[in-house]
Simulated scan of single mutants.
Amino acid sequence: MVLDGSPVHPTYGNTTVGDVDMTWSRRNFLAAGCAGVTATWLGGCSGSGMETYDDTARALRAPLPADAKPEDFVRFASLAPNSHNTQPWKFRLGDDAVDILPDLSRSCPVVDPDDHHVFVSLGCAAENLLIAGNARGRPGEVSANPAGKASSIAVALGNGAISDRELCDAIPLRQSTRSDYDGQPLSTEDLRRLGRAAAMPGVETLFITDRAKMDGVLDYVIAGNSVQCDDPAFVEELKDWIRFNPEAALATKDGLFTACSGNPTSPSWLGSLMFDLFFSKESENEKYAGHVNSSAGIVIFVADRDDEEGWINVGRSFQRFALQATALGIRHAHLNMPIEVADIRPEFASWLGIPDRRPDLVIRFGKAPALPMSLRRPIAEVLA
C-alpha cells in the first residue's frame, strides 16, 4: 500500500532525540572544544584494535557453507536486526529443528516495556534461519508457539529444492545504515520488488514516497524523540548499551558501537563524559531531519494482530524486505520513535489511516555507502 497526501502535524512540539542507536553529533563533540584532543584519544584505540574488530566482523559474516550444519544456520539467524543490538534470543538445537526463545534478561524495559521489539527481533532471526535453510536445500516451516512471555518459535528443517539464494547471500551484508542517504528516488521496479519481498499473511506494509507525507512522519519522529530525550531512564538505558571504542565492543560483542553509527570512537571514560555533556534533542532533531530528507521513502509495517505472534510475523516480513533491499544495494534504518511512545502511537496510527491498529515498525530506505558492521556474541553463548 502506498500512502499519498499532505501531512497532518501532531501537537507534541518540534524537538527530538535521535534514533536509539546514535550518540552525540560529531559537530557538537568538536564544537565543545574536543578538537584539540589527541588523535589517539579521539580514536579511542590503537590501529590494531580496529583491525581486530574488522577481522571479527568479517569472520562472523563468512559465507554459509555448502554443507551447513545447525550451528551455521544459527550464526546466520543471529545476524538479524535487534533493538540496541542486545541480541535478546536463545537457540535450542534439536533433530532437524531449531527453537528460538526470548532472552528477556537482554530486553530494554524503558524503550520496549511490553517486549514488542524482542518478538519482532525473534521473527527476524527466524526468517534468516528459514532463508539459510532454503538456500542449502533444507526448506523449512516456521511456527510460533504463543505462551505470553514464554512464547517461542520453532523452525523445522526438511530436505528439498533450493530457493532464496539471493536473500541468503544478503544476510551477511545487511546492516541498519544510520547515516544520510543520497536523496534519490527508487525506481518503480525496485519499489515493487521491495513490496513483493515484504508480502506476508497477517502483515500490511504502507510505503510512503511522497515528500509531504514523509515530512508528516518526521513530525511524529520529532514528537516521539522529544518525549524520550526528556526521560532520564530512556537516556540512561541507551547509554548503557553504547560501546565507545572497538575494545569495548569486542569485550561484549553486543551493544551499539559508535563507529557503526558514523560517530567518533573514544576511550570509554571520555565517551561517557562527552555523551553526558553533548547528547541533546536539538542536535538529534537536526540529524533526523537530514535522515528523512535524504531518504527515498519510508515503510510502515502493521500486523493484523497485536500480540507476540503478530509481532513475530512483522519481524519476518521486515527481514525479507531488508534482505531484498540489501540485494538491490538499498540501505535501511529504523525510525521507531512514534511507535515507542505510548501516548503518541495512537495519534500516529490515526494519521496513517489505521486508527484501530498498532504500527509495528517505521523504516526509512535509500542508497548510501555502508558503515562498519556490528558484532554478535559467539554461538556458544546463545545456545539454550
Rank of each mutant, 00 (worst) to 15 (best):
N134W: 06
A380E: 15
K253G: 03
P369F: 03
G49R: 07
D67H: 11
P355M: 09
F257L: 13
A59K: 13
I344K: 03
F234R: 02
T258S: 12
Q87G: 14
A303F: 01
A156P: 03
A80M: 07
S280P: 06
A147H: 11
P113N: 08
Q175W: 01
P264H: 11
L328T: 01
E247D: 14
L122C: 04
Q87E: 15
F207Q: 05
A150C: 06
V20Q: 05
P102I: 00
V292F: 02
G49H: 07
A380D: 15
S143M: 14
I171A: 07
R345S: 12
S266V: 11
V235P: 09
D169V: 11
M22I: 12
S261E: 08
P10D: 03
T11K: 13
A349H: 04
D4H: 14
I171E: 00
R196M: 12
G224T: 04
P246D: 02
F321A: 00
A327Q: 09
V221C: 00
H116L: 01
N245K: 00
S179I: 04
A212Y: 05
I222N: 06
H9E: 12
G123Q: 07
S350K: 11
L30A: 06
S143T: 14
A154I: 05
G310W: 02
R320C: 02
V362F: 00
C229G: 12
A62Y: 01
D356G: 02
C124T: 08
T40P: 01
S105N: 13
A384Q: 14
C229V: 04
F275L: 14
F244Q: 03
I339K: 04
T38C: 10
L218M: 13
L375F: 03
W41S: 13
G224F: 02
L3E: 00
V20P: 05
A57S: 09
I312F: 01
S374G: 13
H84W: 08
S317V: 03
I222P: 02
L101V: 10
L42I: 04
N225V: 01
N159W: 11
G262T: 05
A303I: 04
R320W: 04
N145T: 11
S226T: 12
G49S: 15
A62D: 10
V118W: 01
P7C: 11
S83F: 01
L323K: 04
V74Q: 07
A62H: 10
V302I: 09
A170N: 07
L335T: 01
V20A: 12
G202F: 02
E284M: 15
D219H: 09
P81H: 10
D55K: 15
P246I: 05
T188Q: 13
P369Y: 09
P102S: 06
L167T: 08
A170V: 03
L273A: 12
T205H: 02
E284A: 15
N225R: 15
S163T: 14
L130H: 11
I131D: 04
W89S: 11
R358F: 06
A198P: 00
H117P: 00
D54Y: 10
K213M: 13
V314H: 06
M50I: 14
R331E: 09
A161E: 15
G49M: 10
N263P: 01
